[in-house]
């Protein structure tokens, strides 16, 4: 197991390097730059800007300097667009926010999704099954960009219970709507995966044997069915967790949370090379780590899997 983990981590290094180089080149290949505006900036002003940010150097040199700073100092450089700030500061401010609402939303999606899915599978073809399937389909067809404005309309404008946006770590009022809007569609997917996987497991041979032995249903589920049924769910959860904690543009856009998602999109639109690279690298590293974590969980749950 330990050799497996070490092997995976070693492979991760070239993967991240490739990620950095490819995204760096792609980004610089996009038309326009951070200082392209509809205002005609005189050439002498543009030259000063490019000199300050090193854009007057050839691309390979730029990449070399960038790699050196990132690898040796973990320094992502200054933002090209947010003139008073560095990328590290942007990340230090926005990532904790996204991590907070993302992790809570993830927990909510897993707990509600798995319970719904299990309930539906165990009471297959009953009222509970239909209800659970109905809820999860409903949640699936309500993407967060539809959910968010509806939530604000109901809870801010009509009921006046919750603030329509903003962020305070200490006040749960600000966290409720982003969490619900982010969690619903993930919750629906988790519920559906859980349900179908559980149904499959319940019709498996070893469950039939357990039933024939006369074991009570509760014991069959907790001891024999749950673990194997969770395998597909877990492989879905790895990337989902990363997607949720690295931010949703929609959530940041509608709730003005100040999270990382909106920075990512704006950086791409503004050609803020350094911010975009910083977030890309961070998401890349997190994705690799959580996929590894999912694989470890896999092996722990399923004795058939040995690395």
């Amino acid at each position: 197991m330990l050799t497996f983990i070490i092997k995976r981590l070693v492979i991760a290094i070239p993967t991240i390097l490739v990620l950095i180089i490819v995204s760096f080149l792609l980004m610089h290949a996009a038309p326009g730059g951070p200082f392209t505006t509809d205002r005609a900036i005189p050439p002498e002003v543009l030259a000063n800007l490019e000199a300050k940010y090193g854009l007057d150097q050839p691309l390979y040199k730029l990449l070399g300097i960038y790699l050196k700073n990132v690898v040796l100092h973990f320094d992502f450089g200054p933002s090209f667009v947010y003139k008073d700030r560095t990328v590290n500061e942007v990340l230090a401010q926005s990532f904790p926010i996204t991590l907070t609402y993302g992790a809570i939303a993830f927990a909510l999606a897993v707990i509600v999704g798995v319970s719904l899915g299990l309930a539906a599978a165990i009471r297959h073809n009953s009222f509970w099954d239909y209800l659970a399937v109905g809820i999860s389909i409903g949640a699936q067809v309500l993407p967060n960009f539809v959910m968010a404005p509806i939530l604000v309309l109901v809870f801010t404008l009509w009921l006046g219970w919750l603030p329509g946006g903003g962020w305070e770590y200490s006040d749960p009022k600000f966290i409720i709507m982003p969490v619900i809007a982010l969690a619903t569609s993930f919750m629906a997917s988790i519920a559906r995966i859980t349900r179908s996987s559980m149904l499959e497991v319940l019709s498996a041979n070893h469950i039939r044997t357990a039933r024939a032995k006369g074991l009570p249903l509760r014991r069959i589920i907790t001891h024999h069915a749950l673990k194997p049924a969770m395998l597909p769910v877990i492989s879905y959860l790895g990337p989902t967790f990363v997607a949720m904690i690295t931010g949703s543009v929609v959530i940041d856009l509608f709730f003005s949370t100040g999270g990382m998602g909106l920075f990512f999109v704006n950086a791409a639109l503004n050609r803020d090379y350094s911010v975009m690279m910083g977030i890309t690298i961070m998401v890349g590293i997190l994705t690799i780590l959580f996929n590894l974590l999912a694989d470890i969980l896999y092996a722990w749950i399923d004795p058939k899997i040995r690395y």
Binding site: A148, P149, V152, L153, T156, L157, G160, P163, G164, G165, G166, L253, F254, S256, L262
Partner: peptide
């Protein structure tokens, strides 16, 4: 100054008195 990217969202929050 509240930074609100979406203009209909901003309108809703205006109407809610924020």
């Amino acid at each position: 100054a509240l930074i609100i990217n979406d203009e209909s969202q901003a309108l809703t929050r205006y109407l809610a008195g924020e």
